[in-house]
Amino acid sequence: MSAEPRERGPRLAILAKAPLPGRVKTRLIPALGEAGATALHVRLLRHTLAMALATTRPERITLWTALDPAHPLFLALAETHGIRLAAQPEGDLGVRMHHALAAMHGPGLLVGSDCPVLTPALLGQCQAALQTAEAVFLPAEDGGFALVGVRESHPGLFHGIDWGTARVMAQTRQRARALGWRLACPAEVWDVDHPEDLGRLAALDAFTP
């Protein structure tokens, strides 16, 4: 694929926390310890960025940072790959997602940094879906979602959502219907959030030592 169509395609945002021990992947600390949970967080972030770079030019990728926006990892990723850095604003997850999507001023995708089954092919499907749908999601098995993409962001899509619960995707579908939006959901995925997810993670070729 040539660089020209990729350059005109949707932008891509990644939400990521700085790898501060005890502040990331906290539900995995009983199984991995603080250091192990932090190392896994970094590994998942690097994987997410690699998938993004396989589909999107680096200058069209923004890493939206939290906890410590000037963390050395973030600075190193920006210098190595040429991606942009921006600090997440204050507010709940919906506010932060809307802010990142609205900053694109056009079609774009937003992902978290803990979905190990994200692939370039799946990102490509999501980018293509925005040609016919107002929004695209990758619903997660736990009732949330690992990716959202929009043609133009609207705060109503993220308003009044019970973040962190199994109701997130269902409530988001309701908000989309209220806006009159067509949704595309190319696949269901899973995140690494709980100790029971570690066995599945170890079975993935991309995450074997």
Rank of each mutant, 00 (worst) to 15 (best):
R200N: 12
E7A: 14
I83Y: 04
H47C: 09
L40Q: 02
A206P: 00
H41N: 12
W190Q: 07
H194N: 11
G108K: 03
A202H: 10
A78S: 07
A203E: 15
Q174G: 12
P139S: 03
A133Y: 12
V189L: 07
Q88F: 01
G33T: 06
P30T: 10
V189M: 07
A202R: 15
G108L: 07
S113T: 08
E59S: 13
G106L: 08
R175P: 01
L63T: 05
F74M: 04
A100Y: 07
L53H: 03
L122D: 10
P69T: 06
W190L: 05
P10C: 02
H98Y: 07
E79S: 15
V168H: 00
A135G: 01
S113F: 00
C185W: 13
A18V: 08
Q131D: 09
A16M: 10
H194L: 15
T165H: 07
I61V: 05
P186R: 11
G124K: 00
A66T: 06
S113P: 00
L67D: 13
R84S: 13
L118W: 13
L138Q: 01
D142N: 14
I161P: 02
H41I: 02
R8Y: 00
T172M: 14
F74R: 03
A140G: 14
T55A: 09
E79C: 15
A133D: 12
G33K: 06
A140D: 13
A35P: 02
I29R: 07
L32I: 11
D205L: 13
R84G: 06
H105R: 14
A31G: 12
R27S: 09
H71D: 14
H194T: 12
L93P: 00
